[in-house]
């Protein structure tokens, strides 16, 4: 991240509620350790921007918290699992309502495929081939792969 952005001066991390939030803080800690950089962290809840409102229950997890003005910043969206890309689509819309970032990048711990939108991550922890009906769960200890419980 530091290499690609030639330093971390204008970079902020924005974790998506809820899985991406602890991830964003862990990344900020890691960047502090590796680079000595103090990268601000914000959180974003995208519930009100989803395109499946009315199709299934949608509830916000927690209020968004953006303690910085996005103008001129490089925003790295952070999420745990990238799947269809619809959450990221919603996040891009939500982000635009908070301000105009200089650029937006995407970091995910797991990319499990099955994209339904033209979205690709810039930083990936692990590419994990999955079946569509499997469930991926990222925790501190590692990644769980299981059957969807219906």
């Amino acid at each position: 991240m530091a290499e690609r952005n030639r330093g971390l001066d204008d970079v902020v991390l924005v974790g998506l509620q809820t899985g991406g939030v602890p991830m964003a803080y862990r990344m900020a800690e890691a960047l502090q350790r590796i680079d000595g950089a103090d990268v601000p962290v914000g959180t974003l809840d995208v519930a009100f921007y989803r395109d499946d409102i009315g199709l299934r229950p949608v509830l916000p997890e927690a209020a968004s918290d953006m303690p910085f003005d996005l103008a001129g910043l490089v925003v790295v969206l952070v999420d745990d699992v990238l799947f269809t890309g619809r959450t990221i689509r919603a996040a891009l819309d939500a982000l635009a309502d908070h301000g105009r970032a200089r650029s937006v990048q995407l970091a995910v711990m797991v990319d499990r495929g099955h994209r339904e939108l033209p979205i690709r991550p810039d930083y990936v922890g692990k590419n994990l081939p999955t079946r569509r009906d499997e469930v991926v769960n990222v925790t501190d200890e590692g990644v769980d792969l299981g059957e969807m419980v219906k």
């Binding site: 009100f48 499946d52 409102i53 009315g54 199709l55 299934r56 229950p57 949608v58 509830l59 699992v81 990238l82 799947f83 269809t84 619809r86 959450t87 499990r112 339904e116 991926v136 969807m148 219906k150």
Partner: peptide, 25 residues
């Protein structure tokens, strides 16, 4: 109008309804 959830005490409603695919992610 929007949440798609019944306003009931237990809000364990992250479970998708049967006929809608969970495409969160």
């Amino acid at each position: 109008l929007g949440s798609g959830t019944e306003l009931v005490p237990s809000v364990d409603s992250a479970v998708p309804t049967a006929d809608v695919e969970d495409d969160r992610g």
